[in-house]
Each structure stands twice: as C-alpha cells, then as structure tokens.
C-alpha cells in the first residue's frame, strides 16, 4: 500500500459527490479522502470541477448528491452538506481562501485577523451587551485575540504592516494574509484555492514553508487546489486528479506523475490513439 497511511483516519471523506448545474455535470460521483495531518492536492486541467468541489465542501453550494463527512479528533462528525453556509466554518471548523483574494480591503491587516475571530469574541462580549459596558472579561478576550493575530503576523512576516489597510499590501502579502485570516478561525481543515497563483518563485517557496508549518505545528490538515506543479508535487502527501468532474487518479505525487490517464488529461493523447478510438465507436 503506497498511499499515505494517514488516510486510514481521514479528516474529510467525500462520498459519491455529484453537482449538477442544469444539464451540466460539474462533478460526477466523486469520492476521495483527506488524511488527518496530510497536505492533499486537488489538481486537474481548467474546468475540471476543482473549485466546485471546494464550494461544496465549504458550504457555498449544496451538492446535488453525495455525502461529505468531517471528523474532528475528538470523534465529533459533521455532515457538511447539511450545515448552513456559515456553520461549516463555525462548527465543523473548515476554513477556506479564495481564488480571487477576498480580503476586507478597507480594514487594516489587524482588523482582518480580528474579524476572523468573530465568534469567540462575540461569546466573550456577551453578544455585545457585556462588551458595551466594558466588562474586564471582554477586554481580556480582546487582548488575547490581538495577541493571536500578532503571532500569525509574525509567522507570515507582516507584523510591520499591521496597521495598514489590507488593500495596500502587495499581492503576495495579500495571499499570505488571507491564509493567516483563515487560520485565525482555528480550522481542522484548511482549503486553499490556488494559493500560489501569481506568486514569484521566492514567494512560492515561502508559501511551501508556511503550508508545511501549518500541517506540522497547528494540527490542521490542508486541501489545496493548485496549478503550479512545483508546489503540488513538492509539498503534497497525497494528490487527487480530476478531469471533467471525475476522479482519474489518486495517490502519492510520484504515482500520479507516472499515471497514463493523468498524462493524457494534461498533455492530450497521440493522434493514432484518437483514430483508433474513433474507429472503434464508428465515427
């Protein structure tokens, strides 16, 4: 068995996931697992349905069919397709980033990280009432939240820009800030939609280090969509390949790289093969 041993204890199991938009089948009977403590890469050519899978997992789409089970370490199980959108993050603790960065551009870097800690802070502020009169319990919670934000800013090298508006940051910093913001919600599963898009090789290497440290130090499993193969093949423990909404390969990076159907999906097939198939079906 060459697959990651951690697949025996998956943090997320996706079973028979199907998503139809009218007549278009974006995802077709997809099943895969995300091992606890793994970095799992989800790859495939453009239009393969990767982002649709992400939107189903993170509660933005309700899948047409299928089941997505998220398991916490303490044994709690959540059926993601049944949770209302915001509860996927709040209760099941799945965080995500977006392909086109969605920071709160008019708020400072620090504020962005505090918004991510909204739910624990709301509780500490007694749903605003205790906070309004300024009880000490809320002040402590707010202080702790700022400390956590500062710790994350130190990790992503943005502490010196804490009071600048997020919209003023350069692109690479915005990508890292979005990951830090997602991490501030204490997720068990972090879903990253093309985190390396638009990064230069140096920033891309920094990102690899950050993702590895998230996997190793934070008890957070990572599921990422990525086109940059240098990122996927280097840091993934397990890779799932999609094409036309169907899974065509699933295994370690080395296995996937040598898989014939993956090569065919990415590079196409020889002309003779096409002719042979056409002759078979009688076109």
């Amino acid at each position: 068995m060459s697959a990651s041993p951690r697949l025996a204890d998956p943090v997320l199991s996706v079973d028979h996931l199907t998503m139809r938009f009218g007549g278009l089948v974006a995802v077709n009977d997809l099943s895969f697992r995300v091992g606890r403590g793994d970095i799992t890469g989800l790859i495939g050519p453009n239009g393969a349905g990767k982002t649709t899978v992400f939107n189903c997992i993170t509660g933005f789409y309700k899948p047409t069919e299928g089941m997505m089970t998220l398991r916490h370490r303490d044994g709690a199980e959540y059926l993601l397709e049944r949770l209302p959108g915001f509860q996927v993050n709040r209760r099941a603790r799945v965080a995500r980033t977006f392909q086109n960065i969605r920071l709160f551009t008019g708020m400072t870097v620090l504020e962005n990280l505090l918004v991510a800690q909204h739910n624990p802070l709301m509780l500490a502020s007694g749903y605003t009432l205790a906070g309004l009169v300024g009880l000490p319990g809320f002040r402590r919670a707010q202080g702790a939240a700022v400390e956590k934000a500062v710790a994350w800013l130190t990790r992503i090298n943005l502490l010196h820009r804490a009071d600048d508006p997020a919209g003023d940051l350069p692109y690479g910093d915005q990508r890292r800030l979005e990951i830090a913001r997602a991490m501030c919600t204490d997720p068990v599963l972090l879903c990253l939609d093309e985190p390396a898009a638009g990064l230069n090789p140096r920033e891309s290497a920094q990102l690899n280090d950050l993702l590895r440290s998230i996997r190793d130090d934070d008890d957070t499993s990572v599921l990422l969509i990525e086109h940059d193969m240098s990122v996927v093949m280097e840091i993934s423990d397990h890779v799932v390949v999609l094409d036309y909404g169907t899974k065509i390969a699933d295994g370690t990076p080395a296995e996937v790289q040598s898989d014939q159907s993956v090569i065919a999906a990415y590079l196409g097939v020889e002309d003779e093969e096409v002719e042979a198939v056409e002759a078979e079906v009688g076109v």
């Binding site: 915001f86 993050n89 995500r96 969605r102 008019g106 913001r181 997602a182 919600t185």
Partner: peptide, 10 residues
Amino acid sequence: EDEIACRSLG
C-alpha cells in the same frame, strides 16, 4: 466589505 468572505469565516 465582503459578504462572501464573512460567511467563509463563520
């Protein structure tokens, strides 16, 4: 600023 990002943050 961004309602969708808010939803993704719970």
